[in-house]
């Protein structure tokens, strides 16, 4: 499914947060939304999800105006994967994943065998079936993130919005979650992943949308787009790019080369 955003703007109390954002994301690609904290990445997602109504511009899903869709119709097309956060009630993992199927149900009914099969398949795919009876709040951050991804798969939406999925994860879990995102894009999902870490964009994204002060600072294939100059503009600190035998490495560093 193709997501196309044109001239999307949003202002909070007359302060512009997003200013004429334009981009498209195709099926099978992982688009990183890169920018420092507070640049409006979450607001952009909220506009795309239709939660933030007061944005102007056009958002289209395969040509359909996304802003005319109900919550239920949006949920059929776009799944939102939040940051891991404490829940008010500790639902078991299976129930949490099952909640992804809610848009299939009429308002007065509960999930049945078909929905349970979807949840089961999603968990199996991500290798977390063994967690099914665990309470959500007893899981590690990485496991919680995978549960949210499983919920998005059970939702059967073709566009996945991942909101800083690695913000609170250790290195191992971070790589795991990002690899999952990468392989889902390979399967034909349209994956938008917001991050403030340029290295993650470099390692996992096909293309990058860099935001600076609410505007598109750069948009294009990751390796060509992410330059030292761009990163210095985005983050306000000196950055070096090193090509090593393991790939390109982003090194934030104020020092001049020694020796």
């Amino acid at each position: 499914m193709i997501l196309s955003v044109r001239d999307l703007s949003f202002a909070y109390r007359k302060t512009p947060v997003l200013d004429r954002i334009t981009f498209t994301a195709d099926a099978g690609e992982l688009l990183a939304i890169l920018g420092p904290n507070g640049v409006g990445k979450t607001t952009l997602f909220r506009c795309i999800l239709g939660e933030q109504k007061r944005c102007t511009g056009a958002i289209e899903l395969d040509g359909t105006d996304a802003r005319t869709l109900s919550a239920r119709e949006t949920a059929r097309r776009i799944a939102y994967i939040p940051q891991a956060h404490p829940a008010a009630f500790p639902f078991p993992v299976f129930d949490t994943v099952l909640m992804g199927t809610t848009h299939r149900l009429s308002p007065l009914s509960s999930p049945g065998a078909a929905e349970e099969a979807l949840a089961e398949a999603a968990m199996e795919k991500l290798g977390i079936l063994s967690l099914r009876e665990r309470a959500f709040d007893t899981l590690s951050g990485g496991e919680q993130q995978l549960v949210y991804v499983a919920r998005a798969l059970a939702q059967q939406a073709k566009i996945l919005l991942m909101d800083e999925p690695t913000a609170s994860l250790d290195v191992g879990n971070r790589q795991k979650v990002l690899s999952v995102a990468r392989s889902l894009a390979g399967e034909g999902y349209t994956v938008l992943l917001s991050t403030h870490e340029p290295q993650q964009a470099l390692d996992f994204a096909d293309r990058v949308l860099a935001l600076h002060e609410g505007r598109v600072a750069a948009l294009g294939p990751t390796r060509e787009t992410l330059t030292e100059a761009l990163l210095e503009t985005l983050y306000g600190t000196r950055v070096h790019m090193l090509d090593t035998e393991y790939g390109r490495v982003v090194l934030p560093c104020d020092k001049e080369k020694t020796k």
């Binding site: 919550a71 949920a75 308002p107 509960s110």
Partner: peptide, 19 residues
Amino acid sequence: WRLNVLSLGDSEARALGVN
């Protein structure tokens, strides 16, 4: 069942298709 989903918070419940 919808009450379960609502207890996740407004943003998540909406994204899961709940009015």
